[in-house]
Design a protein around this nucleic acid. Structure first.
Length: 607
DNA sequence: GCGGATCAC
DNA sequence: TATGGTGATCCGC
């Protein structure tokens, strides 16, 4: 496994956090090897000296300074605070929050165990018991054997090889996983047609209704669901049962049912590390270092109250109580806010070659937007230097952007003043979207639209995200990814945190519903721009016509005014009573010191 | 509206 | 030999 005699890396306070950072974000997630410290040391060692390492070091230093400043503010605030009084205020909030507890729903979170790896095992049984990973440059997943060595999803292949020299690397086979995912999803859906799909291997259900209708206990229902998947696919599923989404998701392997008794819930939260809370990543974990587990939140309530701006008191108090959203509603297409494409490559400093990459990305994005029926008003360029520093530059228009040339030229315009550059990534993203399909179908149920099924099929091709797995780049799939919204819709239990309903479903499930259903009642549709009747059965023609209309400036303006109401039916305000993700707030004076432009001396990569 | 940062999957 | 891609949100300006 690991060399126990290797000399320890000197552990100054600075390197401790860096070593952990280098180990990657999923280190605290799944159950991993015993001696994570030793593994982290090796990872740091093989990374040392690389540009990647230097960038991580820089970010770690900045973060450390930023946290130090927040802690100084904390000290200041504490000095002049009447702790008793603050605690009394906090206690009142706890009482109010407690009143929101809703124990009536039965929520189930299921995910496939080591999905990619187990699918590979089905076809290659000789891999049984061997350490292997899926993916080439960056691992998408690791077998259980490999995980014992500290190999994780998201890890660079050469680092994984260092940890486990006999590691077998399997090429990624999206089609295989996609087919299997569809089978599994079809089974899951029988238990809740409104389930939230989160990636190809993860689903959130509400089985309240199902259990009532079938007169079935939750455990029995979930047992049956897991058994059905096992029988029909030979894959295993883990499930968490609880009365809200956050509790259901925080489960051990196998099947776990958390009692709906208040005491059981609070006891469960007591030992839950705050890192497990949705929205608490590596950064916020460090910010909240002194808190540790959710059980510690209460005793820190005064500090949290006073530092609400940084810590988010409502969020943390709810976490302590184990209160979270229990609303399970599938993702709606109109919730989408952006669409983009980006590509990583070997560092390039030649301007023309960089522009070629930009053009490729523009083409990808145009295809994706056309195939899925989106236009947008803001174009954002993203680029990553060979030093791994990331920058974005944006430009807004007063017309709808759909075409490759518009995006390419905008990107070029934004990039030009930044030269000279040596880049390892370039990307484009379009926001302020106009849903052309919705416009084309106003007043008509989208599912009933002929011609849109081919898109449904594309979207269905590959569900977005990866569970705890990581995707390797694959341009073939770029057209089929769907976002996961982070807002909740009028939950009966107040969800003050956008994050807590992060797991949500995709439009394709809805579109799938109506497959093979009713014959087209309408043969033509009005163009959303010029209102002319277009052959609705020919979707390509419809889109081509829309593109044509949009290409006329005068009409674009008209559309901008008229269709923005129609195009975003999600103009529904998401009753944001609360201020949202307070944990991500940062120190303003820290930001002021940030470089606003890339450092010219570090950009030009002379060979 | 823009840019940086964080997070999830 | 080579550390990913898509999308969302928040903050401070």
């Amino acid at each position: 496994m690991v060399d126990a005699n290797a000399k320890p890396l000197e552990q100054s306070q600075d390197t401790a956090s860096l070593v952990k950072r280098l180990a990657g974000p999923s280190v605290t997630k799944a159950g991993l090897a015993k001696d994570q410290t030793e593994i982290n040391r090796i990872i740091a060692e093989v990374s040392k000296g690389s540009k990647f390492y230097e960038n991580e070091k820089r970010k770690d230093k900045e973060l450390t300074e930023r946290i130090a400043k927040i802690l100084r503010i904390k000290d200041e605030v504490l000095k002049e605070a009447d702790i008793r009084r603050v605690e009394a205020d906090a206690d009142r909030l706890f009482v109010d929050l407690e009143a929101e507890r809703d124990l009536t729903q039965i929520i189930v979170h299921v995910d496939m165990d080591a999905f990619y790896a187990n699918v590979e095992l089905l076809r290659s049984p000789e891999l049984e018991g061997k350490p292997f990973g899926v993916g080439k440059g960056v691992l998408s997943t690791a077998s259980y054997e490999a995980r014992k060595y500290g190999v994780r999803s998201g890890m660079a292949g050469f680092v994984a090889k260092k940890l486990c020299p006999e590691l077998i690397l399997m090429p990624i086979d999206f089609q295989k996983y996609s087919e299997m995912s569809k089978k599994v999803m079809a089974i899951f859906k029988q238990y809740d047609p409104n389930m939230i799909v989160a990636g190809c291997d993860e689903v959130m259900h509400s089985i309240t209704k199902y259990c009532n209708e079938h007169n079935m206990a939750p455990d029995e229902c979930v047992q049956r669901m897991r058994e059905q998947v096992k029988v029909e696919t030979r894959l295993t599923v883990s499930a968490g049962i609880a009365h809200n989404k956050m509790l259901a998701k925080n489960k051990p392997n196998g099947q776990f049912h958390l009692s709906s008794e208040r005491e059981a819930v609070v006891a469960f939260m007591r030992d839950l590390p705050i890192r497990k809370l949705p929205g608490v990543g590596r950064v916020n974990e460090r910010l909240l270092e002194s808190i540790g587990s959710c059980g510690d939140i209460y005793e820190h309530r005064a500090v949290i109250w006073l530092m609400d701006h940084y810590f988010g008191k409502t969020f943390l108090f709810k976490a302590h109580l184990g209160i979270a959203s229990n609303v399970v509603q599938p993702y709606q297409r109109e919730e989408r806010k952006s669409i983009g494409a980006e590509r990583t490559f070997n560092p390039i400093d030649d301007q023309n070659k960089i522009l070629e990459k930009l053009e490729e990305v523009s083409i990808e994005l145009e295809n994706d937007m056309r195939e899925n029926g989106w236009a947008g008003k803001t174009v954002t360029l993203k680029y990553k230097l060979d030093t791994y520093q990331v920058f974005t530059r944006a430009k807004s228009f007063n017309r709808w952007i759909t075409r490759k040339d518009d995006m390419f030229n905008t990107g070029k315009e934004l990039l030009k003043p930044e030269f000279p550059l040596c880049l390892r990534l370039i990307g484009l993203r379009v926001t302020k979207l106009n849903d052309l399909h919705a416009s084309a179908n106003q007043g008509i149920k989208r599912d009933a639209m002929p011609g849109f099924h081919e898109h449904a099929a594309e979207m269905d091709e590959w569900p977005p995200g990866e569970g705890d797995e990581y995707l390797e780049g694959d341009e073939e799939n770029s057209a089929s990814r769907v976002p996961k919204p982070t807002s909740s819709r009028n939950p009966p239990i107040i969800s003050t945190r956008p994050m807590d309903s992060r797991i949500d479903a995709e439009a394709h499930m809805r579109l799938q519903d109506s497959e093979d259903e009713d014959e087209p009642a309408l043969r033509t549709q009005p163009c959303p721009v010029c209102a002319r009747e277009i052959d609705a059965a020919d979707n390509l023609a419809l889109n081509a016509h829309i593109d044509f209309c949009l290409s006329k400036d005068a009409i674009k303006q008209a559309t901008a005014a008229s269709s923005s109401d129609v195009a975003t039916p999600s103009n529904k305000k998401k009753g944001k009573g609360n201020k949202g993700n307070a944990l991500t707030r940062t120190l303003s004076d820290w930001k002021k010191k940030e470089e606003k432009r890339p450092d010219r001396t570090r950009r030009g990569k002379k060979k």
